[in-house]
Nucleic acid binder design. Structure first.
Lengths: 215, 215
DNA sequence: AAAAAACTAGTGGTTTTCCGCCAGACGAAG
DNA sequence: CTTCGTCTGGCGGAAAACCACTAGTTTTTT
């Protein structure tokens, strides 16, 4: 079995150096270069064989999201592991969606990094354990601790929100619930008031964030 | 360091037996009994010291969710790892919310189970790798289908969408971009046409799904 | 250089949302 | 029994969104 050819993309040279140290000192891995943004990554994979890219998300020129999507489309054999400073689950999801196979935090341990590489090269996913914790914690705090504005709403109001989020107009909603359009507007008004929202755009975003509707 | 006292709760004796085998043959672990439902778990923890419960979610009498919540309240020192047949993220979330520190699938490997126990006993979370995969996979397939309507849009249109999604009105957007409100409306119209949307509510949802905006 | 696409701006009109205010009916909780 | 919250219904008006159609300018592509 050949060595796994690894490319590191990050706009901070320190990170590249650090990962190079880890990769170079591991038998079955080969460090084949660094890139400071997405465009460079693409230039490099065009000129030489690459098996795996450790990809930072925040980069100038072309960011990790865009670059991963590009690689996934044009070089589907190249595996990507996302690197990030922040344990942001949403960002992780987006990277995965764009074709990344794993997600590592930058302060992750050497063993974790090597584990991630081997898992991903065998076609499995790998996610930083730290990420998984925050993944669950994330919506814990909203729902369990402190209070949510969701509690201020009545069942009927929640129902109205759901219908609004189905792109229905006041008339359609009134029809569906067999109530007057005035009533629906009245509810809508109270909702806006309680949630301190400006318009229905804000309402949709709130509804998604508070899991009143699913995307 | 004392052995970790483990209680297994599951309404299938086979599972209990299997886990007993794993626990008993591991040095630092001690199997102290099985329970076939939540009530039994509570009876057992009242009569003897328990460090950790491997808790099935689906049980008669009192299920894993309820029991975990109870333990978390009355015996906060007892760590709980949820056991489940199904890799259902929603269920996992609820268990975590109720106080479980980890989540294992029943077909998980011995190493995973032992890893989970040690991680959890050291105060960290542990989630079955399989679960994490399905967690992310969930909304994967939709977007991977090659072409997206996003390609139909121009940069300016994307920009307008982002501003709309920031709950800005046409006037505000026109102001910010130093163009006429008519132009903004014109763009908005084209967007609606291209994306076949009914109103801005649909636009926000589309924007989130297609990652034009972040929540 | 010509063609195509994108951005710009306008007119004119309809529909929908948003806002404030009011008020009766009903059930649950004090 | 009275109060509170919820659901209901209504009025009038302002603001914003939506729709269709036209058309000049700029940028990009061919």
């Amino acid at each position: 079995m050949d060595k796994i050819k690894v490319l590191v993309a990050d706009d901070h040279q320190v990170i590249i150096d650090g990962l190079e140290a880890i990769i170079s000192t591991t038998d079955h891995l080969e460090f084949i270069g660094g890139a400071s943004n997405g465009k460079e990554v693409i230039t490099k994979v065009e000129s030489q064989a690459v098996d795996l890219v450790l990809m930072d998300i925040n980069m100038p020129e072309m960011d990790g999201l865009e670059c991963t999507a590009y690689l996934n489309k044009h070089y589907p054999k190249i595996r990507v592991i996302a690197l990030s400073m922040h344990d942001n689950p949403r960002l992780a999801k987006r990277m995965i969606k764009n074709g990344a196979f794993g997600f590592l935090l930058k302060n992750s341990s050497k063993v974790n990094i090597l584990k991630a590489i081997s898992e991903v090269m065998e076609g499995r996913n790998f996610f930083d354990p730290m990420l998984m914790s925050t993944f669950f914690d994330a919506d814990n705090k909203k729902s369990s601790s402190s209070f949510s504005k969701k509690d201020l709403l009545t069942k009927r109001e929640i129902q109205i929100i759901q219908l609004i989020c189905q792109e229905k107009t006041t008339t359609e909603i009134a029809d569906e619930l067999s109530i007057s359009t005035h009533t629906v507007e009245s509810h809508r008004g109270n909702i806006m008031l309680k949630l301190e929202l400006k318009n229905s755009v804000g309402l949709v975003k709130w509804a998604i964030q508070n899991e009143v509707i699913e995307l």
